[in-house]
Design a protein around this nucleic acid. Structure first.
Length: 217
DNA sequence: CTCCCGATAT
DNA sequence: ATATCAGGAG
């Protein structure tokens, strides 16, 4: 498909998504940049719902980077167990907090470079924190949902998250990057499901190569 | 590339 | 039984 034609279809997509998910944001519970950073790190390969179930107790015990930096990883493990990867996440979280204290005065840094230099923080997590906590459009968070939906919509043919992000950034107006990421996550989570997409109640099915001119499932 | 890992939907 | 869940490090 010519780039120009793809761009025209993207504007139609954005309009539909804007109507369907006008205020799309994360479903993770957070109260400040530090808690958002932590819950986003914890959300790897688990559901937001599970993270929200344990995060209140986590932040009751460790409300700040300073408090978390003084913890031993082992004492976090029982709390993190239901999330999976719990030993790794416990170690990562304490290392992360210690670096925040030692290198950033206990504050969450506001640049992509500083954030991705932190343990447990890749571009996906950094883009969420920058966009959602600070309102900075520095990238598009490509997770499993964004990756799947973008590919099904034909917005990218790549598999590598960095490549998908580049394709999306070229197609989406910068001021919409953060919202667009959240919208695609919600669409992927509730409509464009991994195993069995619910195309019959998809607001962009007619713009999707999978359905398009064909009948909706 | 492999490893980390429990809970849930299908 | 198996795929999937807002990934990142070694």
């Amino acid at each position: 498909m010519p780039a120009e034609e793809a761009q025209t279809r993207v504007y139609a997509l954005l309009e539909r998504l804007r109507a369907a998910y006008p205020k799309a944001t994360t479903e993770l519970q957070w109260s400040n940049p530090f808690t958002l950073l932590v819950v986003t790190v914890l959300s790897a390969q688990t559901t937001d719902k599970k993270v929200n179930e344990i995060s209140p107790e986590l932040f009751r015990r460790y409300p700040t980077a300073e408090a978390l930096a003084q913890a031993q990883p082992e004492e976090l493990e029982p709390l993190l167990r239901p999330l999976g990867y719990f030993r790794q996440k416990a170690r990562t979280l304490v290392k992360l907090a210690r670096q925040l204290v030692e290198q950033h005065h206990g504050e969450v840094p506001r640049s992509m470079e500083s954030l991705t230099a932190l343990p447990g923080v890749g571009r996906k997590t950094a883009a969420i924190v920058l966009g959602t906590a600070f309102g900075l459009q520095e990238g598009i968070a490509v997770d499993t949902h964004v990756s799947r939906v973008a590919q099904r919509l034909g917005l990218s043919t790549h598999q590598a998250p960095e490549k998908i992000e580049q394709d999306l950034m070229a197609l989406i107006p910068r001021e919409a990057w953060t919202w667009f990421g959240h919208a695609l996550v919600l669409h992927g989570r509730y409509v464009c499901l991994a195993r069995r997409p619910r195309c019959s109640r998809c607001v962009i099915a007619d713009l999707c190569p999978r359905i398009g001119v064909t009948a909706a499932a």
